[in-house]
């Protein structure tokens, strides 16, 4: 396959970037999108040019590092007929020979571009730090099944916990909102008995940090769930809204320090 790649190049955080075009030939239709980029980088290095910086790690769809918007869709999700696609799981056979492919990093104020296609997702860490934990007495491991949890609750919690924090939801959202991510991180703890102690404090703290990190707000468009490689559903956002309302009526105020989270 012969392709033209239009890739965002940016030297460093805060620097101005621009698109650069790279022709690439003899791409195997069976290669993954990341392997295709490896091929391009090899060519660039042989020519003595700066290779394209992009995040990648597991290459089996579970690490959530590949922060690329391909032809206007996060992870190029629309190209594969199956759901749950990250860039490593996207194959070149889904593209037409001679096609021009535009590759951009996630675009959000909260995700500054560090270099080329690499973005800084520390803002997600700040949200998790604000409430993504439970307080339990440590010591020896508890006996299995000492705490009965209905199967439906466990499944619900697992569905939320599938979130890999890739940021595709923010990237795809027309408002750059982190509601899907935050709601999943809240729901997987709030659904379980272990998460009840801090339930409402968790919601208030995590939402406070989410707002502070300058994410946008949810307008219920649903693009986040459509690109989510782990199929996190909008249900969790409804749940977050409900917990937030209850927390407000209970008069729960944020106890989280915003110093570390400041941009």
């Amino acid at each position: 396959m012969n392709l033209t790649l239009r890739i965002w190049r940016q030297k460093s955080k805060g620097a101005s970037g621009q698109f650069a075009s790279y022709p690439i030939s003899d791409v195997s239709p069976d290669s993954s999108f990341l392997e295709m980029l490896d091929l391009l980088n090899e060519e660039l290095m042989n020519k003595g040019e700066e290779p394209i910086a992009f995040d990648h790690d597991c290459r089996e769809g579970i690490c959530g590092m590949c922060s690329m918007v391909i032809n206007g869709v996060a992870h190029g999700q629309d190209r594969e007929p199956v759901k749950q696609v990250t860039v490593c799981q996207l194959h070149m056979r889904r593209f037409k020979d001679g096609e021009t492919i535009t590759i951009e990093p996630w675009r959000a104020q909260a995700f500054p571009v560090l270099r080329d296609l690499i973005v800084d997702r520390t803002s997600f860490d700040h949200i998790i730090q604000a409430g993504g934990f439970i307080s339990v007495g440590t010591g020896s491991a508890p006996d299995a099944n000492s705490l009965p949890i209905p199967k439906s609750k466990a499944d619900y919690s697992m569905d939320a916990a599938a979130c890999i924090g890739c940021g595709a939801c923010v990237a795809a959202c027309p408002n750059a909102s982190a509601m899907l991510f935050t709601s999943a991180k809240i729901a997987h703890l709030n659904a379980l008995p272990q998460g009840q102690t801090e339930r409402y404090q968790r919601v208030v703290n995590m939402v406070t940090v989410m707002d502070h990190e300058m994410f946008g707000n949810c307008t219920n468009i649903g693009e986040c769930a459509a690109v989510c490689p782990k199929e996190i559903s909008l249900d969790f956002i409804a749940n977050l809204n409900r917990d937030m309302m209850v927390a407000s009526f209970q008069g729960v105020t944020p106890t989280v320090s915003l110093n570390g989270a400041n941009k």
Partner: peptide, 29 residues
């Protein structure tokens, strides 16, 4: 105020952006 927050949140626009399932109603609210 929510619109102001959101337009700040997406401070750099995409060169190309495509929606997968959004309704016109939701996009033109």
């Amino acid at each position: 105020t929510l619109y102001q927050d959101s337009s700040q949140a997406r401070n750099v626009r995409y060169a190309q952006q495509k929606t997968l399932q959004a309704t016109l109603a939701s996009l033109y609210m």
